[in-house]
Design a protein around this nucleic acid. Structure first.
Lengths: 120, 120
DNA sequence: TGAACAATTGAGCAGATATTCAACTATAAT
DNA sequence: ATTATAGTTGAATATCTGCTCAATTGTTCA
């Protein structure tokens, strides 16, 4: 398997070519990285991460979230749609209200990991 | 402490008002959520998450990363600057090359958590 | 049925963002 | 010094994104 045959740069890096080759050999499919970036993108907006945090404490309806975060219901609803499409939250209607909850425990784990990093 | 005095919506939700109040009582400062969203934003681009993954396997120079990911050195350098400003990677010049490495072990932990979720 | 509340949706807009391109700095080698 | 390689930077651009606003749907209650 030719790895560096058509390489256009780093032409004198024989010293660390092994490292590059080792990394390349382990590299997952590009789709995996796309999915991964899409997952983290769901956490990359202040409003969405607040929503996810709030739902990690209790299931809540749209107007509860709008009140808690000081946003319009429309804005929250748009973000919840993204989070639903990303399979991070699930919803259930109870009368006039639609209650949202985290889809699984991974979401909380990712949040916790982030908090740990932010708090130095 | 008046919580619902100036509430504009959810006017008949006395049943779950307790939940809302409990969540509000635990809510961190808005700055914390901003920092958290900025952290995850660094992981929210396919190129950046590939860079971080590659650096979790080995420290690499800019042209190595450009080769591995099929991008220009300029594009990689721009993204590395963002990752440096986010304190997720550190750099060190060795002759003509500038080697990059992950700043700390939290980065790898967050990546691993993400992979776990993506792989169902 | 009609009124009120809760939630969703689509269009549109202002701001953010990833990449390209060209110019530039830094180091090494001849 | 000159040349070549490695890396950075700023401007420009095309795309994306988060919110607002208005209209609409779904549910409850009178």
């Amino acid at each position: 398997m030719i790895l560096f045959g058509d390489r256009l740069s780093c032409q004198d890096n024989a010293t660390h070519a092994d490292a590059v080759q080792a990394v390349q050999a382990q590299m997952p499919e590009p789709d995996v990285f796309y999915d991964l970036s899409m997952l983290f993108k769901a956490f990359s907006d202040k409003t969405r991460v607040q929503v996810l945090w709030a739902l990690s404490k209790s299931q809540l309806c749209v107007c509860d979230l709008a009140f808690l975060l000081g946003k319009t219901e429309s804005a929250i609803s748009h973000q919840l749609k993204l989070l639903r499409l990303a399979n991070l939250v699930k919803s259930e209607r109870q009368g006039k209200h639609v209650f949202y909850a985290l889809a699984d425990e991974h979401v909380q784990a990712i949040l916790a990991m982030g908090f740990e990093h932010v708090n130095e």
